[in-house]
Nucleic acid binder design. Structure first.
Length: 476
RNA sequence: GGCGACGUAGCCAAGUGGUAAGGCAGAGGUCUGCAAAACCUUCAUCGUGGGUUCGAUUCCCACCGUCGCCUCCA
């Protein structure tokens, strides 16, 4: 089966077929580094991470580019207030972004181009557009001439003519002189004494927002590449404008397939800095949220094209789902195998069905929630078998392989392991309590045993008894 | 006003023209000294009203509700 994704342009599922060799070139819109990214931002990045991981399973080569927008009005405003350069303003937010990315187990992109490092590429692109009659200069700034690009609006399904009529009261927020209200800035002139600008062949100024992504994506991935993703909000105007800029300059199809992830909602309303209902990763961790649970919630609790309503409940449910996966994975890892047994056909069949079910679901527009359904079905079946039947090593390995394959995309086990390894070692007193409980149990002193267990529980150590003896784990 | 998404059990959620995966929570049970884990059983007619069809939750229409986009918010 081949991977198919919902393409925003055609609004239907399209097969992913590499334009070049067996290589998939993926561009995802990254953060504007003016503030710490919030959980909603990470919903999109995790969707893209899942996509990237699945692409890597399906294709030999995947190149993933994520831009960092390190110059825009808000960044400049803040830099001006702080009295330092853009670099000083954005560096902490870039570091914070990388930190949060790693906390959530998001694979680093292969390239993180920064807008400020691609000024020349943007200038060249704007010059090409001007030569093609698709850009014009006004008061030192450059604008894209929408009338020169008849296909404008195809991605978002907006007819250009409607853009003015309807409006949301925000269109005259721009002070610059444009020929047409729909035209957008490619290059914004700044005063000669303004430090936040670049001297270029276009004059002193700074880039518009959309041009950076066109310039960086085409520089790194070529004038036509495979996949371009972002949050739904990027469809219009950002990606619409990118298409216009890129295709008006190159006269080639810009992107083969567009994917967009849905919003993360907070009490029914989208989470956005502007709305003021954002929550950041450090805040969530402070409240005791586990990275693995957060990742599961964002990646697997609902399909990436459906809004996800964030609250404690889905997070708690995700946490339990991860627990169930981990418990099974631990069980399989600790299984004592019996060598002179035949392969357990029932196990192998269940594993095979889970792998097929998972793969088919993923190939069908990254339906991870459905894929997990197949996995959990198998886990119940496998637990039942393991309750009563010993298995040989090959059978055990098949189960390990299934889990590896699933988590290669889901990506929660490394986060769980990291949390385990970083948790404090038991101190002498705690070790003493555990030993005392072993002794009490050996003496069948259940009262003492239970008393010690409660003591440990209060210290955040859960103790349970298994046929192999007592085991413990830290609980958050 | 234009465009679009969504509405499935207490919660989250997948899905299909032929009577609904999975996760969480709940109830009962098996196992356990007791728990935990695991397993078993149990818990929905798919927003409302029409239509098409032998048959619709799945297709069409209308309505209600929620949410989003409409120039720089992932």
């Amino acid at each position: 089966m081949t991977l198919r994704l919902h393409d925003t342009m055609t609004r239907r599922l399209q097969p992913v077929e590499p334009l070049r060799d067996q290589e998939i070139r993926l561009y995802t819109c990254g953060p504007t580094v003016w503030k710490r990214a919030h959980l909603g931002n990470f919903r999109t990045y995790i969707f893209e991470d899942v996509l990237r991981r699945w692409l890597e399973r399906r294709f030999p080569h995947v190149v993933h580019v994520m831009n960092l927008t390190d110059v825009d009005d808000r960044i400049i405003k803040n830099a001006r207030e702080h009295g330092h350069g853009l670099e000083s303003e954005t560096a902490p937010w870039i570091a914070a972004f990388y930190e949060d990315r790693d906390t959530l187990g998001i694979k680093p992109a292969h390239h993180y181009p920064r807008a400020t490092e691609y000024i020349e590429a943007m200038v060249s692109l704007i010059e090409r557009l001007e030569q093609a009659g698709a850009a014009y200069r006004s008061d030192g700034s450059y604008y894209f001439h929408i009338a020169a690009f008849p296909q404008y609006g195809r991605l978002s399904g907006t007819r250009a003519a409607d853009l003015i009529a309807g409006a949301s009261g925000r269109i005259d927020a721009d002070d610059y002189e444009k020929e047409d209200a729909r035209d957008f800035a490619l290059w914004k002139a700044v005063a000669p004494d303004d430090v936040y600008g670049w001297d270029t062949r276009l004059g002193r100024g700074r880039p518009g927002w959309h041009i950076e992504c066109s310039a960086m994506s085409m520089t790194l991935l070529g004038e036509s590449f495979d996949l371009h993703c972002g949050g739904v909000d990027n469809i219009f105007p950002h990606h619409e404008n990118e298409i216009a800029q890129s295709e008006a300059a190159t006269h080639k199809p810009f992107v083969q397939l567009w994917c967009h992830g849905a919003w993360l909602l907070m009490v029914g309303e989208k989470m956005a800095k502007r709305v003021g209902n954002v929550v950041t990763l450090p805040e969530l961790l402070e409240d005791g949220a586990q990275p693995a649970a957060l990742r599961y919630m964002l990646a697997a609790s609902t399909h990436y094209r459906k809004p996800l309503n964030y609250s404690d409940e889905p997070l708690a449910a995700s946490s339990e789902a991860v627990e169930r996966l981990v418990a099974f994975r631990d069980r399989v890892a600790e299984l004592s195998v019996v060598e002179d047994l035949e392969d357990n056909r029932t196990v192998l069949k269940a594993v095979r069905e889970a792998r097929t079910g998972f793969g088919d679901a993923m190939d069908d527009d990254l339906n991870l929630p459905e894929g997990m359904g197949a996995v959990f079905t198998a886990i119940r079946e496998l637990n039942r078998i393991l309750d009563s039947t010993p298995v040989n090593d090959a059978t055990r390995s098949a189960m390990v392989a299934l889990l590896d394959e699933v988590d290669d995309v889901l990506g929660v086990f490394p986060l769980v392991d990291r949390a385990r390894h970083s948790s404090r070692e038991l101190d002498a007193e705690e070790l003493g309590l555990l030993q005392a409980r072993v002794d009490a149990r050996a003496a069948h002193d259940w009262g003492e045993s239970d008393r010690i267990r409660r003591q440990l529980t209060e210290r955040g150590i859960a103790v349970e008894d298994t046929p192999a003896g007592q085991r413990w784990k830290r609980v958050p």
